[in-house]
């Protein structure tokens, strides 16, 4: 029964991952990535990692993917640009990927782990005790990392005011000057 459940989850997540890579429209692949995150959250629940499953849904499917979808819709990519996306490297990369999977599977093949049952559960209490005692310093450093990411994204995504506006103003002045000259020329003609 558990095995059937696992097979359903695994096949769904592999299908979603293939859809992420193969989909032509960027928005569709973002949505299939959200589906993949949902499937992985279910897999985490079967592995008794309840807090991580909740974080997966809230942070990954909720926050990060909203950011992705927001950026995709903000850029408003044209249809022609999507159609240009031809996979010339598919001939090389799929056999290489198969080779990589073969290598990993060769390592995994003789690695036998027993059936999973009857062990403690990764609740928020258990995770929090580890996070606030032994791993307190990495946790705090993580907050600095997030602060840096916020500042960096604001600096990078900001529109540079000086250059753009000066250019526009220069153009307008040029147009005004040329209009004035034209009118002067017309006046002298008359």
């Amino acid at each position: 029964m558990e095995k059937v459940f696992f097979i359903i989850i695994a096949s769904l997540s592999v299908a979603a991952a293939l859809s992420v890579v193969a989909q032509r429209n960027t928005l569709y692949s973002a949505f299939s990535l959200i589906g993949l995150f949902g499937c992985l959250a279910v897999a985490y629940i079967t592995l008794q990692a309840h807090l991580i499953a909740a974080i997966q849904v809230i942070v990954y499917a909720g926050a990060i993917m909203v950011l992705f979808v927001f950026v995709i819709m903000l850029l408003n990519i044209r249809e022609e640009e999507l159609r240009v996306d031809r996979n010339r490297l598919l001939i090389f990369s799929v056999p290489l990927g198969g080779l990589l999977f073969g290598l990993i599977y060769f390592g995994l093949k003789n690695f036998k782990i027993d059936e999973i049952k009857g062990a403690p559960v990764g609740t928020s209490e258990a995770i929090g005790q580890g996070l606030f005692s032994k791993y307190l310093l990495p946790f705090e450093v993580t907050s600095i990392l997030i602060l840096l990411a916020i500042v960096g994204s604001v600096v990078l995504a900001r529109r540079e005011k000086d250059g753009d506006i000066e250019d526009i103003e220069d153009d307008e002045q040029v147009v005004k000057v040329s209009m004035a000259e034209k009118s002067k020329v017309e006046e002298t003609k008359e």
Binding site: E2, K3, F6, A10, S13, V14, A17, L18, V20, V21, L36, A43, T46, L47, N87, L89, L90, F92, S93, V94, L96, G97, G98, L100, F101, I104, Y105, L108, F111, K112, I113, D114, E115, I116
Partner: peptide
């Protein structure tokens, strides 16, 4: 029965699909 090895195989498949996506 579901063993942890099944999850490792699933994760390696997802990893390889991701690598192929980055390459292609």
């Amino acid at each position: 029965q579901v063993s942890a090895t099944n999850f490792l195989v699933l994760s390696s498949i997802l990893f390889v699909i991701g690598v192929i996506g980055v390459l292609t």
